[in-house]
Nucleic acid binder design. Structure first.
Lengths: 363, 363
DNA sequence: TTGAAAGCGCTACCAG
DNA sequence: CTGGTAGCGCTTTCAA
């Protein structure tokens, strides 16, 4: 169980020049054999491969190749949190899966780059040996954005913001929020909504605001959804200044339950418009614990269309973050000329219906 | 929304030599300023920093640094599946989180390297610009292992196998399996166990075997757990040759339910020893659907001590994969001299008790 | 504490 | 189709 941490490399370093000498050709022929095989005669290729096999040469050194060519064969994924968070958040995971899928096609490595908004994070991201970046949604005023523009490398941001010089991919969050809220409020059958919002910036305690002003929110995703919920309220004649919005601290089921417990202290509330399925499922948990009937007494909407949401009968906004991740990465890798428009739809289920409630625990 | 894919770098490349010229010092003084600041006088440092700021120099080019020094400031994580799987599997995620945590401490980048067991995967992993590897458990005969030894880079494998020249970290799976099985069989109160095993190698259809021979299984984790379950059976006088083992195709709740449905066709079965919580929760689902009472009619054990397992009252083996990931990565990074021994314990809960069943749906 | 020289291993460029 | 030359940007080595 004990291995020396400083074992010397078993193979002395074999270089292209060594292979060239052994094969009796020039270094360039070896380089071409690996990089532009079409340019090289079969005879030469065979000699090179034979010599390489004999010497244990495993191909061009990547660092040297990167230095000379400026290419890295890898893509950076910037996550606006500790990586531990990225690996736990279901939506981030789907997005990452999509990126990974694109990388597999392109034989590209995937470098994870957390962005905790410290200077050193920006430096590390800027200096990373990658050919481009896919960024998980961040704030409009993130100084990282300018740093990414300066790199001159193709960059695509999921969810925005729409920063000059950078590409982005998102659904029309505002329209989708309006649509799902309209389904829940069901042409004024319900008139007292409350909103459970994703955390803005680095909020560490949850806060409730009535008549929240979306333009105060710097996370573009949260802002657009809030705008959409408000659009629906205004259109349906609901006084926005009375509508409470609770900003959560993180995207987790227990946090959603906590939020719902708080908001449901107001007995008038008949609708919860929730910005993620995780949070919404927590809200359903809390409603069940309080004996609040869904949907007759309370309607709940989520966002993401997770498996659990479908199982729980939760009305939600469906968007494929896998597709968005894949599309963003493929554009960065130059496999697509443009990022595909991201589609969405409202999945209408029991949690906003008038008859059947959601099954509380599917088996 | 349209950005040129080929925007030229805004900043013309600024080199160390440029900064040195502007500061009126040698290139080496610039290099020392960034890499060994203690060696440089404050006056020189100030001049260098001023010149760097003036020219927009952001620090040494990483590719050149890697080529010259042979160091990369990054760590490779080898996952024995498509990355999409790694991001979805709860256990793999916890392990990744631990690695990410160690990387954060060490200011090290994290490179994800899928291993689909094709030649090109081995080549990519071997050639990756990383200083060492953390490997998610793989098969004993994986050719990757020799390739990793050849790199001469520190490598630590979670769950084994124990390959000469490579470090590994794991719990004593065999002892833990023995212990949890002993709890379930409860001194011969129950006498007809069946086993739900993690998939070995690249099995694509689930198969049932009676008296399975652990030494036929190439995944060291699965083998050790099977060994442990058998140890318990032999000690308690249960005829191993009659004990069915079902090898699943993947680690998912629905697959666990499917496995349980199959195994419970034999009415004698009174115990399910399951190698993951995901699968075990599926088994509980199936039992509930059949009206099979837990634990009076059927005992179930899991593995991993997930949150869901605790909520469902599932007896399980607790091990911290986060800690294992962190410990493995810290050793690879040279922050620890040895990998910490990984601890485990049996969490005894209602699913193996004699009185209370698990709560089917916690809120 | 500072500097000059050399070259890490490779590929762009140009020539044949 | 093949090859010579030059040099990517930096750090190691040695010297002062």
């Amino acid at each position: 169980m004990s291995v020396s941490r400083y074992s010397d490399p078993v193979n002395t370093r074999v270089t292209m020049a060594d292979v060239a000498a052994a094969a009796g050709v020039s270094t360039m022929s070896v380089s071409y054999t690996y990089n532009q095989p079409n340019r090289v005669s079969d005879a030469t290729k065979d000699r090179v491969h034979a010599a390489a096999a004999r010497l244990g040469y495993t191909g061009p050194n990547r660092a040297a190749r990167s230095l000379r060519s400026g290419k890295h064969n890898s893509i950076g994924v910037v996550l606006g949190e500790k990586l531990t968070y990225a690996f736990e958040d279901p939506q981030a995971r789907r997005f990452l899966s999509g990126i990974a899928d694109a990388c597999l096609d392109a034989d590209t490595a995937l470098v994870m780059l957390p962005n905790l908004h410290r200077d050193k994070d920006i430096a590390r991201i800027r200096d990373a040996q990658v050919d481009g970046y896919v960024v998980w949604t961040t704030e409009s005023d993130d100084p990282l954005l300018d740093a990414l523009v300066d790199t001159g490398r193709p960059t695509c941001i999921q969810g925005g913001p729409d920063h000059p010089g950078l590409e982005w991919i998102t659904i029309d969050d505002r329209a989708a929020a309006d649509a799902v809220a309209t389904v829940a409020l069901d042409d004024r059958t319900r008139t007292h909504p409350a909103i459970v919002a994703l955390r803005p910036d680095s909020l560490r305690t949850s806060t409730v605001v009535r008549g929240a002003d979306p333009s105060d929110v710097s996370m573009p995703v949260t802002r657009a959804r809030l705008d959409g919920y408000r659009d629906a309220c205004l259109r349906l004649g609901i006084d926005w200044s009375t509508v409470p919005t609770l900003f959560t601290t993180h995207n987790a089921r227990a946090e959603g339950a906590r939020a719902a417990r708080l908001l449901l202290q107001d007995n008038m509330i008949d609708t919860l418009l929730v910005m993620s399925d995780e949070l919404a499922l927590g809200a359903l948990d809390a409603a069940a614990a309080f004996g609040v009937e869904i949907p007759s007494r309370l309607a709940v909407t989520g966002w993401d269309d997770s498996t659990a949401a479908a199982a729980a009968g939760l009305t939600t906004v469906a968007q494929s973050l896998f597709d968005q991740g894949r599309s963003a990465a493929r554009w960065v890798l130059g496999l697509n000329d443009s990022v595909d428009a991201a589609a969405w739809r409202v999945e209408e289920r029991g949690s906003t219906g008038l008859e059947t409630g959601p099954k509380p625990c599917p088996t």
